[in-house]
Structure formats: structure tokens, C-alpha cells
Amino acid sequence: MKIVVLVKEVPDTYGDRKLDLQTGLADRAASETVLDEISERALEVALAYADSHADTEVVVLSMSPESAAATVRKGLAMGAAAAVQVVDEALLGADLGLTAEVLAAALRRIGFDLVIAGNQSTDGSGGVLPAMIAEHLDVPNATSLNSVEIADAEVRGERATDHGTMQVTASMPAVISITEALPDARFPNFKGIMAAKKKPFETLSLADLDIDAETTEASRSIVISLGEKPPRTAGTKIVDEGDAGERLAEYLVQNRLA
């Protein structure tokens, strides 16, 4: 079985994340970048399956700037067999529509039985790419899964919906996305880091995928204005001396909040 995991590099959520007020793009210099935690969990689902099914090939795929290669390589160190990175200057500031077309084209080229994505990235947090990609590839989307069961020809799981959980089943090939209810990922160990250096790492351009980023056939989403809000500041802070509950009650009543 061939499993392709979609991994994304994002600004570290533990740091200060900034948007460039001129371009409207994430300011990559302002913060550390990391492999998105949910991407790692998605990779863990694939690797855990591969651990017990020897004939499984796990490939990580990312569309990202060239500088993200080291982040993508972490996927190899964790245990993926190969990595594919789509890099092209024309992708700077790509919207969801273009990103989905590019990832779908790359997936067609790589080939897959199962695609595993995170349900939502921590920077775009669109939560839409897996379904968009499934549409382009004409395969089912079994998305937002809290649990995953991979069988020979189908994939099942418990989907987190807005009203509870629902069983869903998709025949493969399919695209699934997973939630943070799935386990944390393994850490790359020394052996994995060394082995990663010898694993195939393919870099693709838009020309390789036969995609024209400038096409006017698709409508694109663009930023038309951007403003920064002043950060919040601290107000009153008291140390409880036995009456803090009463003082808070008073504060709430005075401010018409209770």
C-alpha cells in the first residue's frame, strides 16, 4: 500500500506570529518554523500502519518554499521512505484553490492508495484542503477522523462532526484527514536522522506538474486590506486574601457582567 502524507511547515505557534503588512503574507523571518503538529500526527497514523504492514510505502508531500526542505526532511527522519516537495516562486502567496490544484497534481504523479492530511493547519486553519484535493482526484473524502482503521480496500473511522461522532467508510483510493484526538507523533531518533540523508527527496516545480499559477480560468482569493490590532494589556491583578471571590462578584456586577 502506498500512503502519501500531506505535511505543512508553519510558523511555530509558541512564538510570535506576524503578517507582513505590505504583502499580507506570513512573515517567515519573524518566527521559527516547524512541521505542523497535526501533520506529524497524520504521519504517525501512516507510520504506525507501516510498522505492522511491511509492504507499505509512506511518502511525505509538501508544497512550501525551498527553505522548508529541512522541515520536510524531518518526515524522513521520523520514518517516511521518500519525500516530495513542490517548490516554485510562483507559489508565493498561493490561495487555497491553487494549493489544492498543485497538491492534487503532485498526488496524481506520485500515485497513492491513501492520502492522509491534518484536519486543519495551525496557520491557514482552513480545514478545506483535504476535501478540495479529494474533489480534484475524484476520490472519497473521509475527513475529520478521531480514529482510523485501514483495511485492504477501504478505510474507516470515527468522524468528529458538529453534533457528535459518526462512522464513515471510504473505499480506496481515498483522502482522509485526522484530528488531534489521534496520538502524538514519535520523535526521530539518531538512526532515523542518519537514514534520512540517504532517502529519496524529490523537488518538483510547477512546470513538472504542468500547472500555470497565473491562469485566469480559476478565480483566486486575494488579500485586499490588512490591519494590525493593538495587543491587549493587563488590567487589575489581586492576590487572594480571603475575599477575592467577593471582590470578583462586585467587579462583575459593577460592569454589568453578572
Partner: peptide
């Protein structure tokens, strides 16, 4: 949002 996603991809609308 997943319905919007599939529709936007199909119609190549801006999302």
C-alpha cells in the same frame, strides 16, 4: 466548509 471546499474546487471559484 467541506461542502464549500468541494464546490469551490469543482467550479474553480475563489474560496
Amino acid at each position: 466548509r467541506e461542502i464549500a471546499a468541494r464546490y469551490a474546487a469543482r467550479s474553480r471559484s475563489g474560496l
